[in-house]
């Protein structure tokens, strides 16, 4: 079997994206350390980016104007921008909370309680 000719299809990429997304989701649900939760969020955003780029790549059509067909990549770029902003503000919040509560443990953050 010639592995070089065996191309990887769209669904494979989507599955990789889904895998990363679900791992991130698990991290968000299961971790106690709030920084770990932020890391997991980044994983999820990355997974979404994989999907954007994959759709862009595989539904690419030479006949359509190139300036429209790169839209998926642009969306991914914007996601990266938002993610960067999110992690900056998120970590600043973590540090502020840590300063007040001396803790990064989400279980102890229960201000939303009645």
């Amino acid at each position: 079997m010639n592995l070089g000719n065996l191309s990887v299809g769209l669904s494979t990429y989507l599955l990789v994206g889904a895998m990363l997304f679900c791992l991130g989701l698990y991290g968000v649900f299961a971790k106690r350390n709030i920084i770990a939760i932020l890391m997991s969020l980044e994983l999820m955003l990355n997974a979404v980016n994989i999907n954007f780029v994959a759709f862009n790549r595989f539904l690419w059509n030479q006949k359509i104007d190139i300036h429209y067909i790169l839209t998926g990549n642009v969306a991914a770029l914007f996601v990266i921008v938002v993610a960067a902003a999110e992690i900056a503000v998120g970590l600043a919040l973590v540090i502020t909370i840590y300063r007040n509560r001396q803790s990064t443990n989400v279980d102890e953050f229960n201000w939303l309680k009645w």
């Binding site: 649900f29 989400v106 229960n110 201000w111 309680k113 009645w114």
Partner: peptide
């Protein structure tokens, strides 16, 4: 109903998802 609000963010996220 307020008994269901535990204040645990992750529980909320799980229900939501």
């Amino acid at each position: 109903l307020r008994r269901t609000g535990t204040g645990q963010l992750q529980t909320y996220a799980m229900v939501f998802f």
